[in-house]
Amino acid sequence: MRDLLRFLGHRLYTTWSTFWFVMPFVVTYPAQWVLGRRPMWYRHLHTFNRSWSIISIRMWGMPVEVVRKNQLPPSQPCVYVANHSSYIDIPMLFKAIPGFLNIVGKSSLAKVPFWGPLFGRVYITVNRESALSRGRAIVHARNGLAQGRSVVIFPEGTISKKPGEEMMPFKDGAFQLAISAGVPIVPVSMPLNHRFLPDLDGELRVRYSPLRIVLHDPIPTHNMTLDDVEALKQRAFAIIASEFRPDAAGLPEPSPRPFWRSSKTEDSKKAPQQLSGSAPNTPQTLTNGNAELSLPNS
């Protein structure tokens, strides 16, 4: 009976969370479609996206901690670099970061029905397998910075395979952009998003979990050259990783199953996750390119 109640509770919370993610967009879609018709209105469309994110996160009902260290003046554009661990990363960034943001996302986002074309107009999409697409994205981001519009980039380029535990090696683009534009880099840590909504190859698995986002101290780039990209990248990597928590490393346990499911099947699904997790009281190693950063689990 306990397993059945847990299964039903999980399904109800997943349904509730999905409803409050979809409903605000559906209600406001006509207004968003109108605002997406002219570039001069994109700023207002971004306000809709921010409001949508705030409403959804609030209705999910879990505590959200937002830490902002030494915020920059609103008139100072910058490059935010954040770890990528979940499909709720973008809503969390929209909630926490003020101003009219420019966010770089994968080109497939623009193909999502209804929402995708709006995203593709207001923000920057990139096919990371195409050098031409990457170059075009950097040009658009540079133009936005020149107009006072901060940009958000996931320097890993994709969602980490071991979220909250290891980050993928950072790519150079965000750091080259900040140095060439002469704007600060702001590292952003989101150590718990994967606990709420992990990336599981299409499976929707929502978990009630506290969330946390930290906007770290800005890193000035004036007087830096492209020779400083590697050091800047390593510094941002270490700062973001400093907020990772050993107790939240890796993907959450499998979803509750109804009592009629075979325990043998359940055990076979748990085994790979147990093998990939970190053993208690052992250091985590976060790898960025050829460098390793060891973080003790304490």
Rank of each mutant, 00 (worst) to 15 (best):
A249D: 15
G202M: 11
K264R: 14
S278N: 14
P63Q: 08
S180V: 06
T221D: 10
Y29T: 14
E65L: 11
S180F: 03
S53R: 09
L197Q: 07
K233F: 05
N281G: 03
W41N: 14
G144C: 07
I240E: 01
D3P: 08
Q273A: 09
R235G: 02
A82Y: 00
R50D: 08
E230Y: 02
K171V: 00
V22Q: 06
F114E: 04
Q273G: 11
P258N: 15
C78E: 01
F100W: 08
E156P: 11
P98H: 09
E166M: 10
S294P: 08
V26W: 03
G120A: 14
A146F: 07
P98D: 09
T287I: 14
A82W: 00
T287K: 11
S86W: 08
A249K: 02
V112G: 05
P296R: 06
H194R: 11
P113S: 15
R43V: 15
G116V: 01
H194F: 03
P198Q: 05
K111Y: 01
N297R: 15
V186S: 05
R6D: 07
A231V: 15
P98W: 00
S150E: 10
F21K: 08
P191G: 12
V151G: 09
P169H: 09
V122G: 14
Y13L: 13
F21I: 14
R128Q: 11
W20Y: 11
K106A: 07
V22F: 08
R2G: 08
R257P: 02
S298T: 11
Q234I: 06
H44C: 10
